[in-house]
Design a protein around this nucleic acid. Structure first.
Lengths: 115, 115
DNA sequence: GCTTGACTTCAACAATCGTTCAAGTCATAG
DNA sequence: CTATGACTTGAACGATTGTTGAAGTCAAGC
């Protein structure tokens, strides 16, 4: 079984080792430990981290991402990924709508400042 | 001349007094001082704060908003507001595009995780 | 002129998202 | 077996955007 070290997950997912440890502390990913107390991650870890980064770009906080990923089993089925993807999409669209609303407000900028 | 206190600007702009002081420290708004060292704001202050809040919703940092507002004279002309509005709009659209890109990434989610 | 509410400063705290450092341990190749 | 690089923890630090509190001052009405 391909158990990965912190550094390997970091390389695979493109984030720093300290971030990987941070994400584990925050519950985004889980690790088992070697007899010498070193973390070993399953092969899905890097994937979860990549998803987490996308979610972050969409604007979710680490806490929200934890909740999102909590619904994802260690060996997710296609349907699991699909659900997660749908939630992420919905959230992104919600945030885009919020930005559009802000845009509207700049359009009414004169009224905003009754010049 | 209607010089406003911190509390008055706070009420007019809908933010807290501590935030108003913070924005002054950060250079988003300027204040003169009474002989007793209290801040007095011009009537444009609340407006600048409201614009700042919109800019914040669009995703600009306080530093970026400072720079944006720096281009705005104390008594802005219509053209001044127009320029600011255009910049804000462009920035909002840029951020919306970024979110769309993130959305794209979730669409390629399966590839993201090569399931 | 005194009371009262609003103001002042400065410092500490809070949440978020990590990075960096020190001191020490583990794993592996040679 | 030992050197080396990767790992461990914990705590401190950093930016960001304010809030909260203490201790004290100001302004305005009565």
């Amino acid at each position: 079984m391909g158990m990965l070290t912190v550094g390997e997950v970091a390389r695979e997912s493109g984030v720093s080792g300290s971030a990987i440890r941070f994400y584990e502390r925050q519950g985004l990913i889980e690790a088992s430990r070697t007899s010498g107390n070193q973390r070993r991650f399953g092969p899905e870890a890097a994937c979860r981290v990549r998803v987490a980064r996308v979610a972050q770009r969409i604007g979710l906080s680490v806490g929200e991402i934890r909740d999102l990923l909590a619904a994802l089993p260690p060996e997710p089925s296609l349907a699991d990924w699909q659900r997660l993807h749908d939630r992420l999409t919905a959230e992104a669209e919600r945030r885009i709508a919020v930005l559009h609303a802000a845009l509207e407000d700049t359009h009414s900028g004169r009224r905003l400042c009754d010049l």
